[in-house]
């Protein structure tokens, strides 16, 4: 899977760096924890810019190539920042059959962005995800951790309006 790499300059804070260092210190005894550290780093920074991957590689004592390899292999790791509200439309089989493709197209149109992109104001980002296991409510989408199910295209405006702040 190809990933979009952000061209935005890295803006990490010293607090974030301290948090990451603590996570690395907790896990560096075992190199197999590299994915765990990356998951936590993504929680801290919201995504995994090259600078953060380098800190992880140095701290864990694994080659940068390994860290980058893992970051690009797994769908969960984001190489570009997500919006304040990350909208993820499920394209699992059940959702697809029930028209989640139309919902995704509509969101692209309303937000003016493509999958994997973020609106210029940093508010919304859009992604397509694999099954989240809520097939009984298909089609579904999530906004951050909130799940919306049994969707019809008409629901899209109301959902976006909820995050108008």
């Amino acid at each position: 899977m190809q990933k979009k790499i952000s061209s935005m300059p890295f803006k990490g804070t010293p607090e974030q760096e301290a948090q990451l260092k603590a996570v690395i210190a907790e896990n560096c005894h075992d190199k197999s924890n590299v994915m765990v550290v990356m998951q936590k780093a993504q929680d801290i920074y919201g995504y995994l810019p090259i600078e953060v991957q380098e800190m992880i590689a140095d701290g864990m004592g694994v080659p940068m190539e390994k860290v980058y390899g893992v970051a690009t292999f797994y769908a969960q790791f984001a190489l570009s920042p997500k919006g304040k509200y990350n909208i993820s439309v499920c394209l699992g089989t059940a959702c697809y059959v029930k028209g989640s493709g139309d919902i995704l197209e509509l969101l692209k149109e309303k937000l003016g962005i493509d999958v994997g992109e973020c609106t210029p104001d940093g508010k919304f980002s859009l992604e397509a995800c694999r099954c989240i296991g809520a097939c009984g409510l298909a089609p579904v989408l999530t906004v951050n951790d909130e799940v919306y199910g049994r969707l019809v295209p008409d629901d899209v405006d109301a959902i976006l309006a909820k995050y108008a702040d």
């Binding site: 190199k31 994915m35 990356m38 390899g69 893992v70 292999f73 797994y74 969960q76 790791f77």
Partner: peptide, 22 residues
């Protein structure tokens, strides 16, 4: 916790992932 890769449902790929690799 996995990180989103369908192939990790294959047992040997899952083991690689457990070891922190692709």
């Amino acid at each position: 916790a996995g990180a989103g890769a369908f192939v990790c449902g294959e047992e040997t790929a899952l083991i690689e992932s457990l070891e922190g690799k692709r």
